[in-house]
Design a protein around this nucleic acid. Structure first.
Ligand SMILES: [Mn+2]
Ligand SMILES: [Mn+2]
Ligand SMILES: [Zn+2]
Ligand SMILES: [Zn+2]
Lengths: 156, 156
DNA sequence: CTCTTTAATGAGAATTATTCTCATTTGCTC
DNA sequence: GAGCAAATGAGAATAATTCTCATTAAAGAG
């Protein structure tokens, strides 16, 4: 079993009283190297490349566990099912209601807001998600360039 | 068919080329009077109080349609499935990763950020969702009051 | 108001995603 | 290395969502 998992995360599992097992290491590793938001099926497939016997149920169980420990977090984009990301760091999306297009943006002054909220509500905050919903430029163009009546193709 | 649906919303449907039907009016009305985030099952049940024959598939189809039109929007809280809300207005949540507790808060300076983003990306923005993730005061207390080793009850 | 066209509907089947069950295995402590 | 509870994987069971298709009815024309 080769793995390059951060000792820190392994410690967090161990200290919380959980056993360090190959499937857990595999799932953890898959999400750590995350360049994408992966769904449970994809996480299963990737985990199986690390530990071939990994079972589907265990992936679900591990995701639930890691979520409770605040290590990962489900994120929902459009009407796709849940995908999982590391629970640290922020996510900032512009979401088009019409076509589902997602644009990511960076700058965000939510962190200062987060500090106030920590004081006010006593939460210990580790990350945030900020999503703006609207219509993307492309869809605006489509809407504008033709009246609804003449758009035979709009309703499916 | 008694309904108190805003003429405006009905116009939006009509202009987009869709027919005004009892199930659509029913679903629309249920979400308009929303005091809660309702899931598809609950929306079906409520819609059936308005139009008894409303079918499940139609509720799903209508929710998809209204989402595309930017009238409603799915929102995911904890690991419950999707629930639907009006697409206008903002939502602000503090979410506890450990126990799933949700606290809503009001003040939010995301709107000004929204304006900048409209300029920068050309989106027409209608609403936003801002969620902070962390550990709630209660769960912090639990974690602190006993060391992991002695907490026989932590791992299920 | 009646007719025609075609989108929309509801029932139920089919599919997909998630959770549960239980016999077996395996980390971890001593 | 032995003992024990936690964890696992296979597959069954369940829940959520989508699809199919015969039927209905909204909208527009006349
Ligand atoms: Mn993202
Ligand atoms: Mn809310
Ligand atoms: Zn778009
Ligand atoms: Zn909590």
């Amino acid at each position: 079993m080769i793995h390059s998992m951060s000792t820190d995360l392994i410690q967090r599992l161990r200290l919380a009283g959980y056993k360090i097992t190959p499937p857990r290491l595999a799932v953890l590793e898959v999400i750590q190297r995350e360049g994408e938001h992966l769904n449970p099926q994809e996480i299963l497939e990737q985990a199986q490349m690390i530990h071939a016997q990994t079972g589907r149920a265990t992936v679900y169980r591990t995701l639930e566990l890691l979520t409770q420990l605040g290590i990962v977090r489900p994120i929902y984009v459009g009407d796709n099912g849940p995908t999982y990301i590391r629970a640290d760091g922020a996510h900032h999306h512009l979401v088009c209601s019409r076509c589902g297009r997602i644009v990511e943006f960076d700058a965000c002054d939510a962190d200062s807001m987060g500090c106030e909220l920590e004081t006010r509500f006593g939460f210990r905050i580790t990350s945030h998600l900020l999503e703006f919903y609207g219509i993307c430029p492309q869809c605006q163009a489509t809407d504008a360039s033709c009246s609804a009546e003449t758009m035979a193709d709009l309703p499916d």
